[in-house]
Write a protein that binds this DNA or RNA. Sequence first.
DNA 1: TTAAACATACTGACGGTCGGTTTGTGAAAA
DNA 2: TTTTCACAAACCGACCGTCAGTATGTTTAA
Lengths: 214, 214
Amino acid sequence: MARNKYPEQTVDKILNVSSKLFTTKGYDQTSIQDILTELGMSKGAIYHHFKSKEDILDAVMAKHFEYSKELFQEALKKGDNARESLSYAFELLASHKGARELDHIIHSQIKNPQFVVKSLQKTIEESAPMVAKVLEDGNQDHSLSVQYPKETAEVIMLLLNIWINPILFIRSEGETVKRIEFLSYFLKQLGVDIISDSMIHNLNSIYSDIGGYK
Amino acid sequence: MARNKYPEQTVDKILNVSSKLFTTKGYDQTSIQDILTELGMSKGAIYHHFKSKEDILDAVMAKHFEYSKELFQEALKKGDNARESLSYAFELLASHKGARELDHIIHSQIKNPQFVVKSLQKTIEESAPMVAKVLEDGNQDHSLSVQYPKETAEVIMLLLNIWINPILFIRSEGETVKRIEFLSYFLKQLGVDIISDSMIHNLNSIYSDIGGYK
DNA sequence: TTAAACATACTGACGGTCGGTTTGTGAAAA
DNA sequence: TTTTCACAAACCGACCGTCAGTATGTTTAA
């Protein structure tokens, strides 16, 4: 089989299988051959579409972030003002439905230093600016009052992704609840009162399901 | 040469050379052979003392954290109360003298996902508890008033290590200054008023020297 | 017919293993 | 006290399997 009519489908297949293997086995522990075997393809195929293994990882990450970006933007459309919009968006991301999609990624981060670092960078470069914009909107429509919107946004996303998410650090359920409470508390101090009790409950039950607790 | 009288010296040599190579070339980019060549030793020697390449990395990290731990504990002895002690300790860590020791480590993190993740874990598991204890002391002697000492400590150390440190994210000098200001501001909100203007200035000039700015 | 889309055989480097060698050490024998 | 010797720690280096990446060929849509 050569000269496929729809090479984009091939690229998609490669990304899907790679994503699955990277997140289940870990990036280092997944060989190109593993991907090829599962795909029933050849090395020529993969190296025709991607220039290196890391190039595949980058594409996988980009795809996932693209998805959560759309999810987030969609949720932002709800609510009467910026504060409510942001609340909705977080609630959605924290809901089972939304989080499930990212389950296997989140869960496998500990095995994947590469994943952690890449997702850190994407968090700062892509997610945080979106949140920052909403915070600034909130300052405009007076639903929020945030002194450092850009920095606050980065810290929120950073803490959510690597501190509260119970993957990097094995801990008990209670500890995660306290972290979420802390985030809520300190966001209030900063004039961002968006985390509801139901959201704390939701977040915690998600993390509990994922199995990050000892 | 076999059956060296002082094997600890051999272990030390291995760790020193490994640390240097890991931090200059990156962990993945440093081969066991690179280490052996620089040491003038054999594979048998290295695999006699360490069970794997990652085992060497762990030992290197442990050694560095041991050093900064001692530095921190020493600084804590100064000051009339917990708040002042903590201020001193941060000031020391932020000073040129103290930070220089960690220069090459910090500077090379971007090349080293393994380094970032390991240092994240060490930060939470070792550094943060030390800071948390001081915060609690501060609650006792009424020099501080912190509602969530444990969580606050973790967030401080996390932000210092991976958010303010301009290694993971290339940025301009002004952006780092703003992050430090933000940290100072939000610590005050949390009842931890320990970051002085001179410290902000110091931190920034350090990061500037290291060359994390574009 | 041309170039994109694959296939296949191969290369070099790397982490780790393993059988073997050297030598410090502690205790028994002289 | 001195000598001897068994043992294990320290070290050597050839070798192996694996893996990312390459060189070169073959097929087929346009």
